[in-house]
Simulated assay, not measured.
Amino acid sequence: MRTERNLTRLDRLFARLDREPERPAGLDVPRMSPHRIVLLGSTLVFYLLIVVAVINTSWLVRLDWQLMFFRPYQQWPEVHAFIDYYVVLGQRGPTAVMVTAWLGWRSWRQHTLRPLLMLGTSLLLLNITVGAAKLSMGRLGPHYATTIGSNEMWLTGDIFPSGHTANAVVTWGILAYLASTARTRRYLSAVSAVVALGVGLSTVYLGTHWLSDVLLGWAAGLLILLALPWFEPLITRAEAWILAQRDRLLSQYRRTTPVSAPAGAPALFPQRAPAEGTSPAREPVGAGHTARNTGHLGQRGHAVRTERAPATPVGGGSRRAAHADSGARVGRSTPASPVTGG
């Protein structure tokens, strides 16, 4: 008899995850084209020019001080409350949660881990590159400046480049990078550029960053987005490895999960062997025509059992005549007749 297994919620979840990864038809994956390489090189040159200009205390540093003395948060105090909330769009924690939730849903619908893996790769690159630049140059912010007109470099600060600005460029720009079509990518690129531009200017308005910090933050985030196609092969191999580990865990789960038979169904497994030192239950003579364990029959078939010889009365032979064919007694279940002593 075939038994059907009732699927649990965990079984349905594994069945959903067991589907092969499939990408939408016509998915436009960015490539490292010559145009992209030119943009990457130009952004890198702009990045280096900003660093050199700040180190040499050029006109850019003088502009930083002029904006600091202008104090935009005092010039337009009516927008201060809005800017306090808007600048959160560049804060790493809240933005990472929002974008991860959206890309996680896309990964679930498309049955691929590429969106989440690409987001993790971009955030890892952001932390490494921007963090290393901050710690190596150690620039102090406007609120902690010590000497008027100086570049405030190598003074144990950590605001150059602007982390809020770079995070806004990468976090919202990754949505445009992962767009399914070129048209959607253009629209999302424009939206992410406006958000990142607003976040950078918001930090200048609040006086937490110099203008040069924001310029370098824009360049740092754009460099990461432009370099992402180089990591596509690595993402593909990582996704294949993760799916292989998933298949291994699923196979182990299915081997260890017991199959429950419906109520009233006969047992499909042999009975447990008796414990050591105890005698098994003896089947009564004459039970040859009774139903036996179906699992026992399914595994070993009928076992030929030689019946116990009848008792011989004391002082004489059996009152029954010996059967002409002793072999015919094998497998018969006629009980022995009562005997008495002589």
Rank of each mutant, 00 (worst) to 15 (best):
S260Q: 15
P142V: 03
G288M: 10
R320F: 02
S212F: 12
L123P: 03
P313D: 03
S150M: 01
Y85K: 11
L225V: 07
R19E: 11
V285D: 10
L243N: 13
V79F: 12
A238I: 12
L119G: 10
L215V: 07
L123D: 04
V259T: 10
E4H: 14
L222P: 04
A291C: 09
L40R: 08
T146Q: 13
R185L: 08
Q252A: 05
R2I: 15
N56G: 07
R31K: 09
L39H: 11
A182I: 02
G93E: 07
E78I: 15
P142A: 06
G295D: 13
V52D: 09
G207M: 03
A15V: 01
L10Y: 03
V97E: 06
L215W: 06
V304C: 09
A15C: 01
F69E: 02
V170C: 10
W76E: 06
F69Q: 03
L228Y: 09
H323C: 04
R300N: 14
Q110K: 08
N293A: 07
N127M: 14
Y144I: 03
A275Q: 11
V214F: 00
I224L: 12
L216A: 12
D247Y: 05
H143E: 11
S189G: 13
N293I: 04
R255P: 01
L44Y: 15
I37L: 15
L113W: 15
A273L: 14
P270M: 09
L113D: 04
Y47M: 15
P72R: 05
L155M: 13
A220F: 00
T8S: 14
A303D: 08
G342W: 06
H111I: 11
L126E: 03
V194A: 14
Y253D: 08
L215T: 04
A193P: 09
G131P: 04
L60E: 13
V61N: 05
H164L: 02
W154G: 00
L188E: 04
